[in-house]
Amino acid sequence: MTPAQLYALVGIGLFFVGLYALGVRQHLLPRILALNIMGSGVFVVLVALARRSDGVDPVPHAMVITGIVVAVSATALALRLMLRVAHATGSATLTDTGDE
């Protein structure tokens, strides 16, 4: 196994760790973090697989930088929204809604 493949596997592992946490945690903060971990996993996969036999492909790096920018804004929105939810409902979870 090449180091690149190892990194890729680690990235996929991170993705699923995040997915697991997103599924089982109730509190919104860990769930938002879980999504960030999933995002990091995907970025690791992208960067790791950018290494090719003929050198390093720059395109995935550009993608990852873009992806990080997107993820930061999404996280900012999520955190702000979490605070509003906590303020309005008294708890930072989604369990107490009656609209399901």
Binding site: F15, L35, M38, L46, L49, G67, L81, V85, T97
Partner: peptide, 28 residues
């Protein structure tokens, strides 16, 4: 609205992550 938006955000971010991992595999 806030609770629905939060649920929507988590869902849509999860969807994007899943999609992006697929893109990574295809790019590879």
């Amino acid at each position: 609205a806030l609770v629905a938006a939060m649920r929507y955000l988590l869902t849509t971010l999860l969807g994007s992550m899943s999609y992006l991992l697929g893109v990574a595999l295809l790019y590879h």
